[in-house]
């Protein structure tokens, strides 16, 4: 039983995809990120992905790199992550953490899982950890009842998709394009195909991320995916203040609701 199962039962019952919004913890400040994440939930995000600012974010494009740099320069510490998660969870929001693996390893995988669960987090998305290397995390996530959200990519073979979905819980993160994070004018045509290929191996919900920035794109992705994940577009809006973040969440939330379901 995944921690995110109730969310997807609800969205499936409503005949729509879920909306997941990403923001790094500590951006622009620790308290400020808590307020922005709360606003994202108020304005229509079903789930927030709280990023861990990291010195070497190889999967991120310029927008998220700059936000992570800014958070680190402002003194973000890993313990602040749990403060932000707790602020979201205590207000009734659903939160997972998205993090490169070394900060978790350095903190201690079991200790990190324990503290994340205690703060009310529901799981973790791990962009540079594949199930093959995830022995410690498989054990810690069982122990502390957290969802393990691994990624599949357009380049993933059927064998790798199978291995990845079997290790996952909550949902599977499908990267829409071969590339790094960042808003794009078009969501890759590979996304729908990847979701279809992934569905051959699992009944888990599938979220699609990388490149979505508008309600129209959200509607398009919602027509074939179970969750629409938006990162860089929220980070760009966060630099402009809380109201632009609210407006984007509302636009995207309308998008996931207006979509015509193909399934």
């Amino acid at each position: 039983m995944g921690r995110l199962d109730p969310l997807f039962e609800q969205t499936r019952a409503e005949g729509r995809a879920a909306l997941a919004g990403y923001l790094p913890a500590g951006y622009p400040t620790v308290d400020g990120s808590g307020e922005l994440l709360a606003a994202m939930i108020d304005s229509g995000c079903d789930l927030v992905e709280i990023g861990v600012p990291y010195s070497d974010p190889v999967m991120d494009g310029p927008t998220i790199q700059a936000a992570a740099d800014s958070a680190l320069r402002n003194g973000f510490r890993l313990r602040d992550l749990f403060t932000v998660v707790e602020s979201v969870a205590s207000a009734g929001g659903r939160a997972v953490v998205m993090t490169y693996w070394n900060p978790v390893h350095r903190y201690g995988v079991d200790a990190f899982a324990r503290d994340l669960a205690a703060a009310g987090g529901l799981g973790m998305i791990t962009p540079d950890l594949i199930p093959d290397e995830a022995g410690d995390w498989l054990a810690a996530s069982e122990e502390h009842k957290l969802d393990r959200i691994f990624l599949v990519a357009p380049s993933s073979s059927a064998e790798r998709i199978d291995r990845t979905v079997k290790a996952s819980s909550g949902f599977v993160y499908a990267t829409a394009v071969m590339g790094v994070t960042g808003a794009r004018d078009q969501v890759g045509s590979a996304a729908a195909g990847l979701v279809a290929r992934t569905r051959e191996h699992t009944t888990l919900p599938i979220g699609v991320g990388l490149g979505v920035r508008s309600g129209e794109q959200a509607a398009e992705v919602a027509s074939f995916a179970d969750a629409v994940i938006v990162g860089s577009a929220f980070v760009s809006r966060a630099a402009q203040g809380i109201q632009p973040v609210r407006e984007l969440a509302e636009e995207l939330a309308a998008g996931v609701r207006g979509a015509v379901r193909s399934a």
């Binding site: 190889v58 999967m59 693996w101 070394n102 962009p127 540079d128 950890l129 594949i130 093959d132 290397e133 691994f150 990624l151 599949v152 990519a153 357009p154 380049s155 993933s156 073979s157 790798r160 990845t164 990267t175 071969m178």
Partner: peptide
């Protein structure tokens, strides 16, 4: 899997695993 004792391995995005394979 590329491990020298505990070291090495592949701590890489899934998108690059196909290329490493």
């Amino acid at each position: 899997h590329g491990h020298f004792g505990p070291y090495g391995g592949r701590f890489m995005p899934e998108a690059l695993i196909g290329a490493l394979d």
